[in-house]
């Protein structure tokens, strides 16, 4: 009996070790579900390095105005984030937000896209290390200042970790470009950012 019990014990122990390894691996990569999603892809710290990779001067001059002032007036001044602007084309793989204008095709449902954000590189801890922020270049010199400020406030919000929500701030999912929503952060959004960084 004793040799059999010993062998059984070793098999159980080995299976438990393998299971523990698999479960630990799953825990590292799994995504927790949340009704109000915020912060999973947030930047790695409160210092927001941002820079443009826009090649065309006119696109750069138009959009840089909005990006610069929204980062300064909304995110730097009203939250715990600190925006650090890099000169054009000076960004590197660790820059938090790299922005440029692009002829973004329509969305899958055919609707016109004003801007988009996606994570292009992540850290081993699962946070977004470099986000790509694009503005539809067809809007350059074609929209009002109010719309430009609204779009940039919105897209930078995604880079901080915000999802779409309608609370009076700049994060609704869609926008009438001729009657843009507010171009400032809501208190709700500010509180989320300050709790994360």
């Amino acid at each position: 009996m004793r040799p059999l019990r010993g062998r059984f014990k070793r098999v159980i122990t080995s299976v438990a070790v393998v299971l523990a390894i698999v479960i630990a691996g799953t825990a590292v990569t799994a995504t927790p579900a949340s009704a109000h999603y915020f912060g999973l892809t947030k930047m790695d710290d409160s210092r927001v390095d941002f820079g443009s990779d826009e090649d065309v001067n006119d696109h750069f001059l138009f959009w840089n105005h909005f990006v610069h002032y929204q980062m300064t007036d909304q995110y730097d001044a009203r939250t715990d984030l600190s925006g650090v602007e890099q000169c054009r084309h000076c960004w590197n793989d660790g820059t938090d937000i790299v922005w440029f204008a692009f002829p973004i095709p329509n969305a899958s449902n055919g609707s016109r896209v004003l801007g988009d954000w996606s994570c292009r590189s992540f850290t081993l801890s699962g946070k977004c290390d470099r986000g790509r922020l694009r503005f539809n270049e067809g809007l350059t010199r074609a929209i009002s200042g109010a719309a430009g400020f609204a779009i940039t406030c919105h897209e930078i919000g995604h880079a901080t970790g915000a999802e779409h929500y309608s609370d009076g701030g700049c994060m609704p999912a869609s926008m009438n470009v001729n009657a843009p929503f507010t171009n400032v952060l809501s208190r709700h959004h500010i509180d989320h950012i300050n709790s994360q960084y």
């Binding site: 990569t29 016109r112 988009d116 994570c119 081993l124 699962g126 977004c128 779409h164 926008m175 470009v177």
Partner: peptide, 15 residues
């Protein structure tokens, strides 16, 4: 390999 789940977010103009 490691997988990071991230939303792909667009701001659109509704019809």
């Amino acid at each position: 390999s490691a997988v990071a789940v991230s939303p792909y977010q667009t701001l659109t103009v509704p019809f």
